[in-house]
Amino acid sequence: MQQRRMESSMQRHRILIVEDSPTMRQLLVFALKRIPNIEIVEARDGIDGLRKVTSDHFDLILVDINMPVMDGLKLIHLIRDEESLAAVPIVVITTEGAETDRARALALGADEYLTKPVQAGRVLAVAKALLKVP
């Protein structure tokens, strides 16, 4: 158990943040940098996110809903359609707090749904849980 935990904490994790707001991206990077052996890649919109997620391996994807070019829901749909990406955990971080929006995102395949304003500690806790980092 202890060894598995150590292995999990030593393993390198790659996270993709798909968010159009530089402020939010910086806050998310700030929060997630506390995970040991982490590598964070940023994407500015859905298209940029799709290009990065299909060309590289990621252990976790954080997605905003309201973005230019391609929104987060469309991106989640495309990611879940791709067999090789079907198991990658997706966390939605959005201003859309209505229950219907949450249900829609979860139905499309999102694993967690966080609403803004979100605390850095909450993002960190959710990311750690999905990455199985102690």
């Binding site: 707001s21 530089p22 939010m24 910086q26 803004k116």
Partner: peptide, 25 residues
Amino acid sequence: FQLHSTLDLQEVLRVVVEIIINLIG
């Protein structure tokens, strides 16, 4: 950090709006 990251007025205003939406709600 974001507020002082640019000297372009429109960019500063965009950052102000972003902060209010994303960090305050």
